[in-house]
Design a protein around this nucleic acid. Structure first.
Length: 956
DNA sequence: GATAATCCCATTTTT
DNA sequence: TGGGATTATC
């Protein structure tokens, strides 16, 4: 993009007044916003510090700054302190500088200081909250009845955060400003919702939706005796509507005790947190808001001449209000796209943008009720629409609009016209209109998706635009987007089996990864020689269950593992231990990296000993705490991420996978004990009563009725679909497993029953270094790991730690070099390997597994081997194994592995000559080996079998 | 054809 | 635990 288009230019030039900008996907929003910013500060009397630019992530803030620097005459230095930041970091800055006494404004006798921490980790805060609640319960026996009706106290933390996001704060003796009104709810607003839902359907022939929903009223519920009976509440058979007075009856309830309870928990938690010297993200905004609201002089000092907010559809109610307090003039510009609002669980209020005008007026009225805090006029409001899309083909854009009107279930009704009225259609700017939109379905969805990826790579039909030219797609052009992380992880596991380059991007449950589990296992071994630990380590090394049982029973751990344990025991730091474990197992990817960083970062504060770390990892596994991983740069691989994580990104080819489960549950939690939602107000679903002399928990019939009236739609699900489809530049593939969801059935695209063909991978035109050989499915039981062949005292053991049977291969370098990573040889061995590889022409394949089925004593047994490098030429296939030190007594091990591979490759390439050799890196000598015959291998298997079956039969 | 009863299945994540 | 889909009943 070089020059702005007309609408963009309009926005860039319109720097005075209130502006609402509808900036759809791919319309060059960042480009335009940064230009506008540059234009504003180019004015003589405007400095960067006068202009507030709010983004919703720190990454976005950094990107904005970078883009602005590259467009402005100013250098980075001028912007280092410029307010281009998130609401949270702005609030943090304000509190650090001026917030010392902010808590006292709510009546809390505590201070915010430079040393007040921000708790970012949700699980850490939940732990603190539980501690608070235990103490609170002891101190407040008067609230026992409420606690008895709450299953998980952290629900209350959720409620507190929700209230904070709406600007409802407690004070010492009540609620801040008009907060209590939110808690009471608004009967009129509720009534209109109730009435709308209570309209008879089908020209009066059918009962209302509300009456239908109440069909299970009281089912498996325990109400107090005074609750209306089902027939009373719904009217008898044939009645089409719920009686009108039910609305008032259900709404009106004495909630004073409940409000008092929530108030006390809320207020005392804020005090507790400050006492412990921490704030959370919610209270950060809370105190900043209170400060700006109360201290008029301070507000006027901080106020900005220009305020711009990006991704406004992601803002919460309190953030809208904060923006108003921070705007000193009417130069307020919000930029966003309601169609991309998918963060309601994060308290984002899409109404901020869809009902901008009415919200603006309401908030200003509320904020000005007792003092004129906002002095500018709220009209006129100018709307600007960016309509040119620089990302996708027109077919994709047209298609994406469909997602917004696709019903999510057979009973789901959408007001199509009303939606289309809201949609600002985009027009594509792409030079090429080469676009595939398709849907595939197979019960082995992972296999189908991987096959599709193979089909796409190098395929002319899926050409993509690059620098104005069409070219064949590569792995890196493809992204698999899924709704759940689980599917992504499964897909990665399967991809690994077939050596397809896929990499996860985004938050994963790090402690549930293999890397973390293995580290945990070794830590347990070190700490207490734990059987659990040994079992995990042995299992990882490929021992069968029976073998593991045998070894554990006799505590006869393999000597190399014992040696490794001894080595770990000498290590002093737990970071060092972790590093050593990962290097031993060849874990050098992003997971291990993030694990090490995480361990190191918590090391000083909460973790001192191995035991601490064990508990830390165990908690991490239990709670499923998430950490971000990123693909290693420069690798040509398919990106796998959740739709949420993909927001703002673009990919030439998008596979929208796992469109499964029949339907998505409607957004918005379904089972919290206490609900708060305008206009219904604060409600308790269950209450305690002991009318009969002993404790009982009764359901609250009123809440059940009210909940049915809450609008609970699929709108956000549709927006999620919209976000996913608009990530694609050219091609879009939907994929489903066994149960395609309703969306997929409704979307106007034919679904193809697509069979996975993972056995036959095709190499692309380019030199793909990945081995894409069909691996014969092992027949019969896979009874032998290579280790059961090695560890039998028949052959020499490998004792020197390098290339031992469990753990790092010494050939990472060769692998990474062949795979095209930018790696530099670090020592002579690696330099020799590099020189050797450089001398080879033809197709190179690395680190390959081979399975060889054998018949031993009329039983089918499959044995397994790994080889470092395969060199394919038209006439020959050379198998090469690198060996760094000739003095090692491991030749027979290598010979066995190479032999397994020799036979497998002979079957695969019957017309070529197969050779196997060892390359000694120390003296760059290549020595061909004489492979063992299949019969010899069978004999080995028998030997191994005899030595282990005495006590533990391997095969059933 | 409308209504009632029964079965089945359940997620995302930044500050 | 609650809603959609499915099946049974009015």
């Amino acid at each position: 993009m070089t020059a702005p288009n007309d609408q963009q230019q309009d926005l860039i030039d319109s720097i005075e007044g209130i502006h609402v900008v509808d900036a759809g996907a791919g319309t060059g929003k960042t480009f335009t916003v940064t230009r506008r910013y540059a234009g504003i500060i180019d004015q003589d009397d405007v400095e960067p510090e006068d202009v507030l630019l709010v983004t919703f992530t720190n990454n976005a803030a950094t990107e904005m700054k970078d883009r602005i620097v590259s467009q402005c005459e100013y250098g980075m230095r001028e912007f280092s302190d410029a307010p281009i930041q998130t609401f949270h970091s702005l609030c943090h800055d304000i509190l650090m500088e001026h917030g010392f006494e902010a808590p006292t404004l709510l009546g809390i006798d505590d201070r915010i200081t430079q040393s007040t921490r921000i708790i970012e980790d949700e699980t850490v805060e939940q732990g603190l909250f539980r501690e608070f609640i235990r103490r609170f319960m002891d101190d407040h026996p008067e609230h026992d009845d409420f606690f008895r009706a709450i299953t998980d106290p952290t629900e209350l933390l959720g409620l507190i955060n929700q209230l904070a996001s709406k600007g409802v704060f407690p004070t010492a003796d009540g609620w801040y400003r008009n907060g209590e009104r939110h808690l009471d709810g608004d009967f009129e607003a509720f009534k209109s919702m109730f009435d709308e839902l209570n309209e008879p359907q089908n020209d009066g022939n059918k009962q209302s939706r509300l009456r239908y929903k109440l069909g299970r009223y009281g089912h498996e519920k325990c109400f107090l005796p005074e609750a209306p009976k089902k027939a009373e509440l719904r009217g008898s058979r044939g009645t089409k509507q719920v009686p009108a007075d039910v609305a008032r009856e259900a709404f009106e309830e004495d909630r004073e005790d409940l409000k008092q309870f929530v108030h006390d928990v809320y207020y005392e938690y804020l005090s507790f947190a400050l006492g412990r010297n921490y704030l959370n993200f919610g209270s950060l905004q809370l105190f900043a808001f209170v400060l700006l609201c109360e201290d008029h002089q301070l507000r006027e000092t901080i106020e900005f001449d220009y305020v711009m907010i990006d991704e406004f559809q992601d803002s919460s109610e309190i953030q809208f209000k904060l923006a108003l307090l921070l705007a000193g003039t009417h130069n307020l510009c919000v930029v966003g796209d309601w169609k991309q609002s998918i963060y309601s669980f994060q308290y984002a209020a899409v109404e901020n943008i869809t009902q901008f005008e009415s919200r603006l007026n309401r908030f200003v009225r509320e904020l000005n009720a007792d003092y004129e805090r906002i002095s500018f006029s709220t009209s006129p409001i100018r709307e600007i629409e960016l309509i040119e899309n620089y990302r996708s083909t027109q077919s994709i854009l047209d298609f994406s609009e469909q997602s917004l009107v696709t019903p999510a279930s057979s009973t789901d009704r959408i007001d199509t016209e009303a939606v289309y009225d809201r949609v600002v259609s985009l027009s594509s700017n792409a030079t090429h209109e080469n676009s595939q939109i398709e849907a595939i379905q197979h019960e082995d969805e992972e296999g189908a998706v991987l096959t599709k990826i193979q089909e796409i790579v190098g395929n002319e039909a899926y050409q993509i635009e690059d620098d104005g030219e069409l070219r064949q797609p590569e792995y890196k052009d493809i992204a698999v987007l899924t709704r759940t992380r689980d599917f992504g992880r499964e897909l990665l596991t399967v991809a690994e089996e077939y050596d397809l380059p896929l990499a996860y991007e985004g938050g994963i449950e790090l402690f549930r990864s293999d890397q973390a589990k293995l580290l945990l296992a070794w830590l347990r071994i070190l700490e207490s020689d734990s059987r659990r630990g040994w079992a995990a380590v042995l299992e990882e090394a490929g021992y069968s269950l029976e073998e593991v049982r045998h070894i554990l029973g006799h505590e006869a751990y393999p000597s190399n593992m014992q040696a490794f344990r001894a080595e770990l025991q000498t290590m002093e730091t737990i970071g060092g231990i972790a590093e050593r474990v990962f290097s031993q197992y060849g874990y050098n990817g992003s997971y291990a990296d993030v694990l090490l960083t995480t361990i190191q970062s918590v090391h000083n504060s909460t973790i001192q000993t191995r035991g601490d770390l064990i508990r830390f990892i165990e908690t991490g596994i239990d709670e499923g705490s998430r950490h971000d991983v990123h693909a290693i740069a420069g690798v040509n691989s398919v990106t796998v991420q959740t739709i949420h994580a993909a927001k703002g990104l673009e990919h030439p080819i998008v596979i929208l996978a796992n469109m499964n489960s029949r339907r998505f549950p409607p957004s918005g939690g379904s089972s919290s004990a206490i609900t708060f939602d305008d206009p219904i107000g604060l409600r308790q679903r269950k209450q305690y009563a002991d009318d009969y002399g002993y404790p009982h928990i009764h359901d609250n019939w009123r809440t059940d009725v009210l909940r049915k009236c809450l609008p609970r739609g699929y709108d956000e699900e549709r927006r999620l679909l919209y976000v996913a489809t608009t990530r694609s530049k050219s091609h879009l593939v939907f994929s489903a497993g066994e149960n395609p969801n309703t969306f997929l059935e409704e979307i106007p695209v034919d679904m193809e029953a697509y069979s996975p063909d993972v056995q036959e991978f095709h190499d692309g035109e380019t030199t793909q270094s990945h081995l894409q050989i069909s691996i014969p499915t092992p027949e019969g039981p896979v009874g032998h790991s290579p280790h059961s062949l090695m560890n039998d005292d028949v052959f020499e053991k490998v004792e020197d730690g390098r290339g031992s049977e469990f753990g790092t291969r010494t050939h990472e370098f060769a692998e990474r070099y062949v795979l095209g990573e930018a790696v530099e040889p670090a020592n002579d061995d690696e330099r020799h390997i590099k020189r050797f590889i450089d001398s080879l022409d033809g197709d190179l394949r690395v680190e390959q597994d081979a399975y060889l089925p054998l018949t031993v004593d009329s039983e089918r047994i499959t044995i397994y081997g790994i080889v470092d490098l395969v060199h394919l030429q038209p006439e020959t296939v050379d198998i090469i194994d690198f060996k760094t030190d000739r003095s090692r007594l491991a030749e027979s091990e290598y010979r066995k592995q190479l032999s397994i591979y020799y036979h497998v490759l002979t079957e695969w390439f019957p017309e070529r000559t197969v050779t196997a050799s060892i390359f000694y890196t120390a003296n760059e000598q290549q020595v061909e080996i004489d492979p063992l015959s299949k019969n010899e291998l069978c004999d080995l298997v028998k030997l191994a079998e005899r030595s282990t079956t005495e006590s533990a039969p391997i095969l059933d």
